[in-house]
Design a protein around this nucleic acid. Structure first.
Lengths: 201, 201
DNA sequence: GCCCGCATGTAAGACGTTACATGATTAC
DNA sequence: GTAATCATGTAACGTCTTACATGCGGGC
């Protein structure tokens, strides 16, 4: 039993705050975002669900069906929500795009203040890396290394677009929060499950 | 000895085609690009160098110095170059940004044809993911999931900027290769213009 | 007939990090 | 004097993937 990573375990736990899901549902959801943050394989996903279950952070409803494997629908418990809250408190992101996106998806579980802090933290990191790249470009001088030039140019392009996205998003969120009063509460109004989610056949 | 991954081993080997380097040099170089592709820790880097040495793909020159650890300068051998060439032939990228950047850095070891193919491959992948995100947005409808909306919006912004970068870069490379006759040789003339463009601190 | 999607899960091993060990030099 | 950089390396451990096992249903 390869004790799964804290971050991935918590992330999957937090997906269950959106709605109860089966392991396969989690997989499909993450596969649709695989470009941004990759998606775990069965070999890591199912052990994580089992660990959550054994830790009492989720419950499972087994839906038995004729002649096919039962679907196991996982639902987060109160204990799970508490554990999640504790994890959310100590945001210490590690600079990678993946960890940034992880927390971005969880925006609903964050107070607006925390969300803004998260975005601003990312902003400063990207800005720093932009500077680093600029220094690299300067240090390179006239050496004709096509690969390095392309890479640095690429990095600059990505960094620039990310910064503008962060700026406009921050501005939008700030603008939205000014008229509102509930600054500290979670901003997610209609949390109610709505378990349909699959209409396509 | 945790036999290191093929890709990382080959990538580090290929860095030595740029110039002979010590392990620490490799580390520093990769740290300066850590945002794009991360940088390996000592625990993976040094075993890789040892494996390359034992495989005869590199040689080492030990520079002894007074009272400090000797610097070990690694140089790629003919056998190393051949092995690298073979690896380069079978480009089967795996969609991640990291693997894309890895090959981008190695542009000098690629024929122009291969480089263009690489960029075009990336282009089609990003375009596909852009479509996926679009579908997600459509499927979401009016559900108010702030985190998911932000994430999808973010993904779209990144994808768009990457596509425009790829387009302009492809165009530039095509434009440069038309007048020239040597289509198949490695290209490295000092092309890429004007990468300044920093306005914000 | 065959492969793909659905749906779960396990075992073995590849991969990489963390933490340590060593120790001189430079900078605050 | 405490910390950071230079510079190498090892061992233990955490983490994740690959490949397999199972088995039905639907499309080509």
């Amino acid at each position: 039993m390869p004790a799964p990573s804290v971050s991935l375990r918590c992330f999957i736990l937090s997906l269950l705050t959106r709605q109860p899901m089966s392991g396969y549902d989690v997989k499909r959801f993450l596969r649709s975002l695989s470009w941004l943050m990759g998606s775990p394989s069965s070999g890591s996903l199912y052990p994580i669900l089992r660990a959550l279950l054994e830790g009492g952070l989720v419950t499972v409803d087994v839906v038995v069906r004729q002649d096919r494997p039962p679907r196991k629908i996982y639902t987060i418990t109160q204990a799970g929500k508490r554990a999640l809250q504790e994890w959310m408190e100590q945001l210490t992101p590690s600079g990678t795009l993946k960890s940034f996106v992880m927390r971005l998806i969880l925006a609903n579980n964050l107070s607006r203040r925390k969300l803004l802090a998260h975005l601003e933290h990312r902003r400063s990191e990207v800005a720093r890396h932009q500077n680093t790249i600029g220094q690299n470009v300067a240090a390179m001088g006239d050496k004709t290394d096509l690969g390095l030039r392309l890479t640095l140019d690429y990095g600059l392009a990505i960094a620039r677009s990310e910064l503008t996205w962060l700026d406009t998003t921050l501005e939008r969120l700030l603008h939205d929060s000014e008229p509102g009063q509930a600054v500290e509460g979670n901003l997610l109004q209609g949390v109610v499950p709505d378990v349909s989610a699959r209409s396509r056949s």
